[in-house]
């Protein structure tokens, strides 16, 4: 074996983005932890992992990770309460600003969401492979280890778009969405209650019965996320760079024109740029984290399961086909998403 070094990430991008993040983020948190039980960690956008506690602040781009006995409740600054169930990886996006709409999603596991602010400002809710628009809603979202997302609406209305089909749900309605497929039939979830572990295990068994079809659906979802990272990266980079230049200009103005002119530049130019760049960065980071989480918690898990099932038969044709699809999408992920990550993200 030959030792290899971890590829260097574009350090300037990360440093500038985090500087903007910490500057603007210090002013307001995007969520606050209001309840904790068991093991709950917050993995911050800077890659630091800290134990969640009552009153802990959570910023857009952070992930809440609960262990098998951990649970947490968050108050979102955008309005709404989220209860994160055990064994869940939950991603927080920022407070809506300008063109950005806040989003809440689980990479795997489950959470319940209750919106309690003024209508019209609801976040998008879902998983890394499915997203729903909500209106005055209380709902529960389950995300299985194969990426299947199940929505159960308790109050209000939910609309889910997937693969060209829109499904509308009302109170007591439920639906399951498989990765890369249209939403299934709407059903009354009260008549089909689930135990998450049993449901998840059944879906993994189904995956193993047709792994190549399943990985194709997941690859399509990952390609869509990579497309979004590719499309939004220039805008996010440009806004970060603009804020950085405005900060450099602040020193130049202070030197040349004095404190009053610098104060005016700070208030009129630098602060709005920082806020806008922060909102763009957090929104973009949510997409990057979604791709990372899809790889880390869904693709890797499924790949490990099938590698385990065929551990002593590594040349099985089904395993070869599975790897071909997975390696293809991962090659693109490594090229486009990974340069946006730092080692402490994983």
């Amino acid at each position: 074996m030959i030792a290899t070094r971890i590829r260097r990430v574009p350090a300037l991008y990360i440093v500038v983005a985090l500087a903007i993040g910490s500057a603007a983020g210090a002013a307001a948190q995007d969520a606050t932890v209001t309840f904790v039980d068991g093991g709950v960690d917050i993995r911050t956008e800077a890659g630091v992992v800290r134990r969640a506690d009552f009153g802990s602040g959570v910023n857009g781009g952070d992930r809440i990770i609960t262990d098998r006995r951990g649970e947490a409740e968050l108050d979102l600054a955008a309005g709404g309460t989220v209860r994160v169930a055990p064994d869940t990886v939950f991603i927080v996006s920022g407070t809506p600003s300008g063109q950005t709409q806040s989003r809440v999603a689980a990479a795997v596991g489950s959470f319940s969401f209750r919106f309690r602010a003024a209508a019209g400002n609801e976040p998008r809710v879902g998983s890394t492979t499915s997203v729903a628009g909500v209106r005055g809603t209380e709902l529960v979202v389950y995300v299985a280890s194969d990426g299947t997302t199940r929505y159960e609406v308790i109050e209000g209305r939910v609309e889910i778009d997937s693969d060209g089909r829109t499904v509308a749900l009302g109170p007591n309605d439920g639906v399951e969405v498989r990765p890369g497929r249209r939403p299934g039939q709407v059903f009354s979830f009260l008549e089909r209650p689930i135990d998450y572990a049993v449901w998840n295990s059944g879906l993994i068994d189904e995956f193993l019965s047709s792994p190549v079809d399943s990985i194709r659906g997941l690859a399509a979802e990952m390609h869509a996320l990579i497309d979004e990272v590719e499309r939004r990266a220039p805008q996010s980079d440009a806004m970060s760079e603009e804020a950085r230049r405005a900060r450099v200009r602040l020193d130049e103005i202070r030197e040349k024109d004095g404190d009053d002119a610098a104060e005016k530049h700070f208030t009129d130019v630098l602060t709005p740029l920082r806020i806008a760049a922060r909102a763009e960065f957090v929104s973009f980071r949510f997409v990057v984290l979604s791709a990372l989480s899809l790889d880390q918690y869904i693709l890797s898990r499924l790949a490990a399961e099938i590698e385990a099932a065929y551990f002593f038969d590594p040349d099985a044709s089904v395993l070869r086909e599975f790897r071909a699809v997975l390696n293809d999408v991962r090659a693109r992920y490594e090229r486009i998403v990974v340069p946006r990550l730092v080692p402490s993200d994983v």
Partner: peptide, 20 residues
């Protein structure tokens, strides 16, 4: 493959054990 959670590792080792 890098397995990141305890429940995932439990599932993978269970599968490995049944194949081993």
């Amino acid at each position: 493959q890098v397995v990141s959670s305890e429940s995932d590792l439990t599932a993978v080792l269970t599968r490995f054990r049944s194949a081993a």
